[in-house]
Design a protein around this nucleic acid. Structure first.
Lengths: 159, 159
DNA sequence: CATAGTAACTTTAAAAATAGAAGTTAGTAA
DNA sequence: TTACTAACTTCTATTTTTAAAGTTACTATG
């Protein structure tokens, strides 16, 4: 299967990955959350090629995760901003950051998060909304819908 | 800059992305969290090419996120299992899943999460460990270390 | 007014990664 | 003996990415 078919899968992770699961898109999102809005600033901060940046921005815009807004007509200039859909990717970026800080870091994390609500430096964590406890991989069990279960077993059978 | 240079960046997100920020690695991790352990099962469930799967598993093993364990000597057969480092990527997968379910889903999520602690279906959320409140992008402010700030401003100047 | 500079891209060509198929190794099962 | 499985590796065609140069539409400087 090629990556082009990922959006068609019934797994929502596969679909998410098809849209934002590549190196450069994630770096663009990082920049967005750091406040970068302009083409050349994305270029400078990520050092990706302009060709790719243009393509990725277009893809994110088509998807609806960012929107382009003109800040000058003459000459034509525009900014890119996150939509609600795009802002909802924050947990993904934060999760990557924390993992990177923890397992690949060399000393201090270059970026720290301040919780505006309480004003403190914080390391956001995943919790269960029902009982409030912190959650990790071992506290969770995946439950598949019947149809998804069938789909996965079908893959097992005939190849 | 090419993707090969990502691991050298001082940003921990860039470093994380260099290791696990590609389509197929994320799908492999999804399978790991669903309990898949064997080469051919990864192949069947992700439908990636065996060439790529072999490469990605090797990379994850070298990194230390998974380990290979023989479950038979004759014939030689092995399983892949998450290490603690690998299990710590759970929040990344969960964040992608929730975003996918919310923004790209068509009806029911194919996978649901049960919190073993309280036994309930749950949608894990990000909270501030200090005050306990749920957090989103708008509740957070990024604070850069001085050296990282300087590094970013240097990119701005001379090109 | 000519030259330099900036922002936001697009085009091109060469290099690298991927996809799909076929092949390999070391067995077990009919 | 033939078929089949698990876990890969090799091969080639196609696609994607990289890096560099070019384009468009201006503004600023001497």
């Amino acid at each position: 299967m090629s990556r082009a078919d990922l959006p068609l899968q019934s797994c929502s992770i596969a679909r998410a990955v098809a849209q934002v699961g590549d190196e450069w898109t994630i770096l663009i999102l990082r920049e967005m959350f750091l406040g970068t809005r302009r083409f050349d600033d994305f270029l400078r901060q990520t050092r990706m090629s302009s060709h790719l940046l243009a393509g990725r921005l277009k893809k994110l815009e088509t998807l609806g995760a960012i929107r382009r807004e003109a800040y000058s007509e003459h000459p034509p200039r525009s900014e890119y901003r996150l939509t609600t859909m795009g802002r909802d990717l924050w947990p993904v970026i934060i999760a990557l950051k924390q993992w990177g800080d923890c397992w690949l870091g060399d000393g201090d994390a270059p970026v720290q998060i301040v919780h505006k609500g309480c004003g403190r430096l914080t390391k956001p964590q995943i919790t269960c909304p029902d009982c409030g406890q912190v959650m990790g991989a071992r506290d969770a069990k995946a439950e598949l819908t019947e149809s998804y279960e069938r789909e996965r077993q079908a893959a097992w059978r005939h190849t």
